[in-house]
Amino acid sequence: MSRIGAAVHVVTTDGPGGRIAATVSAVCPVTDTPPTILLCVHRDARLNAGIRKNRVLCLNTLPASAQHVSDAFAGRKGFSMDERFATASWLTLATGAPVMEGARVALDCEVTEILESGTHSVIFGHVVATSLGNAEGALIYLDRDYHKL
């Protein structure tokens, strides 16, 4: 799977299950009518539990300049969740899930379905609001390393 390049995202959620986020790359658009995405999250991840309880998420696609944000939310720095969130500025749109200021795009979603496959949950989100950042280059993860486009 490491040979399949992918954009790097920080997925956030907030609500009764807490404010939680993690770096993910297993994301895919599903349909534009209604606008729907899917993401895959390990069943044991705190993010998975938070999304299940909160039923909302925001997919924040990172620009090339945000590798430090990706590293923080991937747990590479040993930061607490509050320290991770301190690596960027945040706002909210419709669902209350944190939206990263400066993300290439942020898709604010309500969870519509969760399926299980192997070690991961496949989470479907209906996009209810968007935020478009500038067209700065993208951060890509390929061969277990970052690349900038």
Rank of each mutant, 00 (worst) to 15 (best):
I20K: 12
A22D: 01
A22V: 00
S25K: 07
S25R: 09
C28Y: 01
C28W: 00
C28V: 02
P29I: 01
V30Q: 05
V30L: 09
V30Y: 05
T33C: 02
P34I: 07
P34L: 12
P35R: 07
I37M: 15
L38K: 00
H42M: 12
R43A: 14
R43L: 13
A49S: 14
G50P: 06
R52C: 13
N54K: 09
R55Q: 15
V56M: 07
L57V: 14
L59T: 01
L59K: 02
L59Y: 07
L59R: 03
A64F: 11
A64C: 11
A66Y: 09
H68R: 08
V69C: 06
S70M: 07
D71F: 00
D71N: 14
D71E: 11
A72Y: 09
A72P: 04
A72K: 09
F73V: 07
A74G: 13
G75Y: 04
K77A: 03
F79Y: 15
F79W: 07
S80L: 07
S80W: 03
M81C: 06
D82W: 02
E83K: 13
E83I: 06
T87Q: 15
A88Q: 05
S89L: 08
W90R: 06
L91N: 08
L91M: 12
L93G: 12
L93Q: 05
L93M: 12
L93V: 07
L93E: 13
M100S: 00
E101Q: 15
E101T: 14
G102W: 02
G102V: 11
A103C: 09
R104K: 13
R104W: 01
R104T: 03
V105K: 01
D108G: 04
C109T: 00
C109H: 01
E110W: 08
V111G: 03
V111M: 10
T112N: 04
T119E: 15
H120V: 01
V122W: 07
V122L: 14
H126M: 14
A129E: 12
T130W: 11
S131H: 14
S131E: 15
G133A: 13
G137Y: 00
L139G: 02
I140H: 03
